[in-house]
Design a protein around this nucleic acid. Structure first.
Lengths: 197, 197
DNA sequence: ACCTTACTAGCACAGCTGTGTTACTTTGGG
DNA sequence: CCCAAAGTAACACAGCTGTGCTAGTAAGGT
């Protein structure tokens, strides 16, 4: 085989073009032709790396979830327990331009997954992963005494998940109703009570 | 003018067909032709009542929000204060088949509104309306002593809104992660604390 | 040097889309 | 009765879509 490295690089380039296209007009705009144009390639070239459009979309989604996962893991470095929890949760919210970009694209796929079983499977896996992460997080906070001892991890994780999803959804779809700072503050207040001043 | 009443009825029929089409495959499937077929009409007939596809979609969205609004108002009849609050909030969640249908369609429009300024305006109005309703609700609960006196209505309404949106979003996009009963219970626990038993 | 393999490009096809236009049918007021 | 208004239908057009297919280019192992 020849130039295997270029293959990987090309696939990354194309996926990046998919993201840019998605960002501009949603999945409806992510046609093979438009993605190819965005990547500066012919449609035939794109189809050489991704046999079908569904394959291209699925790969773009998986790449995206890898990116988000990596970001969350990076936020784990924060030493202070409370700050670490908030930082990791914050990566799941569109609080910065980069995460807003990523989560906007993610929203696109989640939405499409309601009618696309192949995407639904991937999205479902991601959702379960996030849920387990929240369980883990809540249990940790209870053990370290940052949440009351009687806390029900199931219930608390579910509520936290809904709140995070809701904040993300509102920031992405109804800007002006909520700004990023308010969302961050709301999350903190929900987890640890109102901030002492 | 002739048969003005039939005109109204026809428009309602067509909008109902839009909803059914949307339900099946999202806005991507709600083409003029498919809606016409669903309504048992020719495409020309549909275009006689709605000059353009955008107009058709906008009208379908407004009709939907009227329907939801009416439902919420109907839930106001409940005499008990707490039950009334929960009933009205419950109408904003896909807890029954009928509301799940409606909110699924609503989600479709909200999503599209991210790239469609005309829809964005309508959706933005709806979001502000809901937010004001939540403010009103929270203030009422505080006045009647069902929420602590120190409650900040702004903050509480915002959090409540995010939770409701998050629960709705999860029920619609990630069934299996959460069931309807859990969502209802979560909402109640969030507002009034864990249910006494 | 050469030839297999990886890659790039472009065209063709069938199918769908929104919309404009034109013609036909029904209907109710005068 | 009759005719203008209202509603229905069908076709045409240009443009976009995913995908199949074929031809051309470049590169590295032998």
């Amino acid at each position: 085989m020849v130039r295997r490295i270029d293959q990987e690089a090309r696939r990354r380039d194309i996926v990046a073009a998919v993201w840019r296209t998605l960002e501009r007009g949603g999945l409806a705009e992510a046609s093979v032709r438009k993605v190819a144009a965005e990547a500066g390639l012919a449609t035939g070239s794109v189809r050489h790396f991704f046999g079908t459009q569904a394959e291209l979309h699925a790969f773009a989604l998986r790449s995206l979830s890898d990116r988000v996962g990596e970001r969350v893991r990076r936020a784990e470095a924060e030493p202070d327990v409370r700050r670490r929890a908030l930082a990791m949760l914050g990566e799941l919210l569109p609080l910065r331009d980069d995460t807003a970009r990523e989560l906007g694209i993610w929203l696109e796929f989640v939405h499409r997954s309601r009618y696309d079983p192949a995407l639904a499977e991937i999205v479902g896996d991601q959702a379960r992963e996030v849920r387990e992460f929240l369980h883990h997080l809540v249990r940790g906070l209870v053990e370290l005494g940052h949440l009351p001892a009687g806390t029900d991890p199931e219930q608390t994780a579910a509520e936290l998940g809904a709140l995070v999803d809701g904040l993300a959804f509102e920031l992405l779809t109804a800007p002006g109703l909520l700004d990023r700072a308010q969302a961050a503050e709301l999350l903190e207040a929900h987890l640890f009570g109102p901030r002492p001043r």
